[in-house]
């Protein structure tokens, strides 16, 4: 589903290279975990997958279902089914959450040539998904993410994911800031989306999330490269021993 080949990318503004020859393959149906020390480039990789324009790809390829997505803008990628749950969702005053959800869902449907949702259908979907994620409906009356607590923001991201039904889900530290109960609810939400035609990339620092969302593969990202790939036991290994050995071997 996703093939990243020898990817090099830098910050557009000052030319600093962050991703330095990264290779990663994620198959349909797979849950891949990406771990790695702070500042190694995990969020940057997720931004680049989503098409954020602050970064420039200088070399390499990103193939999604066999096709390059490098020329697509974030909206085009989203409507092809790529979704990024942000590590730090932004607050947008003046944009009503419900209106935003409706526009996002319908624009994606339009881009795929599907009929738009009727208002009752839309409201029903939001209510159901919000209930599953134990989101207080009053929260959805507020402007987008404005005044949401850290945990509420993360839940709102998963709500969007559930509603948009993406094919490639990238979760950037969705577990941070969540209490134990919320972690379980969010993990259930992600597991409910697991299916043979869908892939999930979970970026996390902690084994705890991976106890709930059990990964098929685990990748260690360090200084802009994947330096080790393994199965779920690799995460346990990292939890026990830290990154020092792996980094030492890669150097």
């Amino acid at each position: 589903m996703l093939e990243i080949k020898n990817l090099h990318a830098r910050i557009a503004e000052d030319g600093t290279e962050i991703i330095r020859g990264l290779n990663l393959t994620v198959k349909a149906g797979e849950v891949a975990a990406i771990m790695g020390p702070n500042g190694s480039g995990k969020s940057t990789l997720s931004y680049i997958l989503s098409g954020r324009e602050d970064y420039e790809v200088t070399e390499g390829e990103i193939l999604y279902n066999g096709e390059s997505i490098l020329d697509l803008d974030p909206a085009e990628r989203a409507s092809k089914g790529i979704f990024l749950a942000f590590q730090y969702p932004v607050e947008i005053p003046g944009v009503a959450t419900m209106q935003f959800l409706k526009v996002a869902m319908n624009e994606q449907r339009k881009a795929r040539g599907e009929p738009e949702l009727t208002t009752p259908d839309f409201i029903r979907r939001v209510k159901e998904a919000a209930a599953e994620l134990k989101i207080n409906p009053d929260m959805l009356k507020r402007p987008l993410n404005v005044g949401f607590s850290g945990g509420e923001k993360k839940r709102a991201e998963i709500l969007q994911m559930a509603l948009l039904e993406p094919k490639l889900c990238v979760l950037d530290e969705t577990d941070s800031g969540l209490d134990i109960d919320a972690l379980k609810i969010v993990a259930d939400g992600v597991n409910a989306l697991r299916s043979p035609d869908r892939a999930v990339i979970v970026i996390t620092h902690y084994q705890r999330l991976l106890d709930y969302i059990v990964p098929d593969t685990v990748h260690v990202l360090y200084k802009g490269q994947i330096i080790r790939t393994g199965d779920k036991s690799l995460a346990l290994d990292l939890e026990a021993n830290g990154y020092a050995d792996i980094i030492g071997e890669a150097a």
Binding site: D73, A75, I92
Partner: peptide
């Protein structure tokens, strides 16, 4: 803000 909305599929 623009990036966030676009990342959810809202055209530019």
């Amino acid at each position: 803000h623009l990036y966030y909305l676009m990342a959810r599929g809202v055209p530019r």
